[in-house]
Design a protein around this nucleic acid. Sequence first.
DNA 1: CGGAACCTTGATGTTACTCAACACAAGTGG
DNA 2: CCACTTGTGTTGAGTAACATCAAGGTTCCG
Lengths: 257, 257
Amino acid sequence: MQQHTRQHGPSYGDRPPERHRLVRKLQGIADVTSEERQALLDLPMTVRSYARGEDLVREGDVPNECCLILEGFTFRYKLLPDGRRQIMAFHTPGDIPDLQSLHIGVMDHSIGAMMPTQAAFIPHKSMRDLTHAYPGLLHAFWRDTLIDGAISREWLIGVGRRDAHERIAHLICEMLRRLKAVDLAPNDTFKIPATQADVADALGLSNVHVNRVLQDFRREGLITWTNYTVSILDWERLQKRALFDATYLHQAHEAAA
Amino acid sequence: MQQHTRQHGPSYGDRPPERHRLVRKLQGIADVTSEERQALLDLPMTVRSYARGEDLVREGDVPNECCLILEGFTFRYKLLPDGRRQIMAFHTPGDIPDLQSLHIGVMDHSIGAMMPTQAAFIPHKSMRDLTHAYPGLLHAFWRDTLIDGAISREWLIGVGRRDAHERIAHLICEMLRRLKAVDLAPNDTFKIPATQADVADALGLSNVHVNRVLQDFRREGLITWTNYTVSILDWERLQKRALFDATYLHQAHEAAA
DNA sequence: CGGAACCTTGATGTTACTCAACACAAGTGG
DNA sequence: CCACTTGTGTTGAGTAACATCAAGGTTCCG
């Protein structure tokens, strides 16, 4: 590795530029007028930082604000009483992982930081005012939660009916497409702060088996995956291996490789 | 029509009484005023019938209407290229399984009838007019899709991290609670038109294994399941076996046994 | 009566899990 | 600076929970 780890996150002024990611993301799934764009940028937000392993929101909470990911990565997860963990989604900058809390009071799962993460918390009231003033944004947000649901259904197919190789290949395909859509995957390479154990808990596998499958993929020249950095070496074969079809991502503009 | 909100005045005219299930269901998840109630009942609908195995909506379709289940059962499913099938949701009378098509053009999965089913098709335009006139209903519908998402996430945990016994017990618990909420499970007994192969495809198992687990449950005196009829004999132990916690269903009123 | 759809049972096979050990890097406190 | 710890990746051996394959049984229905 070269000069990668900027230990100390850059400190932004009182309006972090990452706020634009929300606009960028919504533009990816709906039309956003310049008025709406400005209203989004003017939302009152409280920025907080989290270390890896900390929870932004916890199962059982009844939040009165939504969190917008500015920098970092989070995952949606749930624990069984005996500690088994299922990760149900990864979220990237621009996402609002608990948007649903606007309508569903009590959280039925937790949201944790996968790496040092900055999140902007927006009061529910502000969100309601915003969507009241701009119904177009309300539909954009609804659409966003629907796509989130479509992704979790696709994960359901994976865990239910794909074998380990297909599952892992599929996850890599999905992350590439999603990160490309927010310009975070130049050269078919992206960072993903997931350990092999995280991947295992996302795909319903054991960490040991994830390790072995990744070695297969490396041997086959499909990908590299070291230091939390994934590079796709053979997109065509990887897609085939995954039985990947990006329709479910409902991306407005094509980000195909 | 001033007095129409009286519970016992069944003056639906020539409208099918099943239409009320939609009201019943929405009342279960949000407050519905009597005006909104009437507007729901006045929605233009085209009723169509389907035999078991027929699709109401198919992957790739771009629908311009939503389907409301009046009578019967449907499931949401998707096929892999080689025929493997994953069922992602069961839907009961009162559900609008493709409500999302209002915002997401192309269907990324199919909806099939599990038994002879009557569905009422409502033009998207009528739905948009309705939610425009009654924003409260818009939020009720959004909430409905969010709960649908919560259920599919719970299925994801099941398939990812529960073993076969837990999965099957959990499905039974969920169906009981959901059907009780629409008064379709008197005496902890309900009909579910799923074959063992259907259950297998919903839970990521083989039909043979489903059969064996069901036999275990029968031997243990937890349930009976014959002729598409399920009876819960020991709710307490079944819940324990399933690690069941109904929070994710977000039911407004408790329907606990 | 014959067939179709579904359920049941047994035998066999395999995917992926568990357990356990070790390697390696980075961070931490002495 | 080192010894120690902690987190992560890697490898091997043994095993369990499933799947698959195949056959027979039941029920229902035209």
